[in-house]
């Protein structure tokens, strides 16, 4: 056990499905080592015991969708020396950012019996739209090994080795024949950031874009290739409008294919 106090870790939830926190708990074998290296100060998904801030490292899951949360995230930032956002909700607004493309009153009135009780924002936005963020870890959900890499890097005071290039690069490293070329399967891999290990192409499926836009996404060119494979504009609209619908490059391409 280190003699110096262990860094205090907090995990926060905003608008999200908790899947990224579950990915954290999926680290299973590494969780005990982690508990040896950090003091878990706030992680309600795992424990009801909480310790007061400040926190050396805060992991933030979820997007900002309510007036209260715009204030709460400021408080979280104030309590955190380092703040890392985890997952598509926190980094791009999540699937709930679909509201950004419609009128929120229409959703509220059609979903809730008493819409007057609902207080929600018109748009779902990533954490970085509200407070400074030290690092964004992509994915829907995040990959446990990437999360461990980010935490290990934080503990060592180094940059995390989280690549921002395309899924294609890890797909080819894994030896997968390109599904777009060999099967004519529509795949978002060329415009999507690596990190998942190219799971879907490894099972002969096209990439769904769970990790959001890669560093220099040429979505118009990929969209033309999809059209040549027989995809409709509606297919493209739907493909770019999922978990990372609010990410700038995907938003633009989905709007380019909207009616």
């Amino acid at each position: 056990m280190p003699t110096s106090p262990r860094p205090r870790l907090a995990v926060w939830k905003f608008a999200s499905c908790d899947g990224c926190q579950l990915s954290f708990l999926d680290c299973e074998d590494e969780l005990l080592s982690l508990a040896g290296e950090v003091e878990i100060g706030y992680f309600l998904e795992a424990s009801g015991r909480t310790l007061p801030g400040p926190y050396d490292l805060s992991l933030v899951e979820g997007s900002i969708t309510t007036p209260e949360d715009t204030q709460r995230i400021r408080e979280v930032r104030r309590l955190s020396k380092r703040l890392v956002t985890i997952g598509a909700c926190a980094t791009a607004g999540g699937i709930q950012a679909l509201r950004n493309f419609a009128r929120i009153e229409d959703f509220v009135s059609s979903v809730y019996a008493s819409p007057e009780y609902i207080q929600t924002l018109e748009r779902s936005t990533p954490i970085a739209a509200h407070v400074p963020v030290d690092f964004e870890l992509r994915g829907c959900p995040i990959h446990p090994l990437q999360l461990l890499e980010v935490i290990s890097a934080f503990l060592a005071g180094r940059s995390p080795a989280i690549p921002t290039y395309s899924v294609c690069i890890e797909c080819k490293r894994a030896g997968n024949p390109c599904v777009l070329v060999s099967r004519g399967v529509a795949c978002l891999g060329p415009v999507t950031q690596a990190g998942c290990g190219a799971i879907c192409p490894g099972y002969a499926r096209g990439c769904y874009g769970c990790y959001g836009p890669m560093e220099s996404p040429n979505t118009p060119s990929l969209a033309r290739a999809w059209r040549a494979l027989g995809s409709s504009r509606r297919d493209l609209l739907r493909a770019f409008r999922t978990f990372n619908a609010g990410a700038e490059a995907f938003r633009r391409e989905s709007e380019a294919n909207a009616d």
Partner: peptide
């Protein structure tokens, strides 16, 4: 460049 995806497939294969 308007067509290139900068995906890296050409270099990998």
């Amino acid at each position: 460049a308007s067509r290139c995806l900068s995906c890296g497939n050409c270099t990998m294969v």
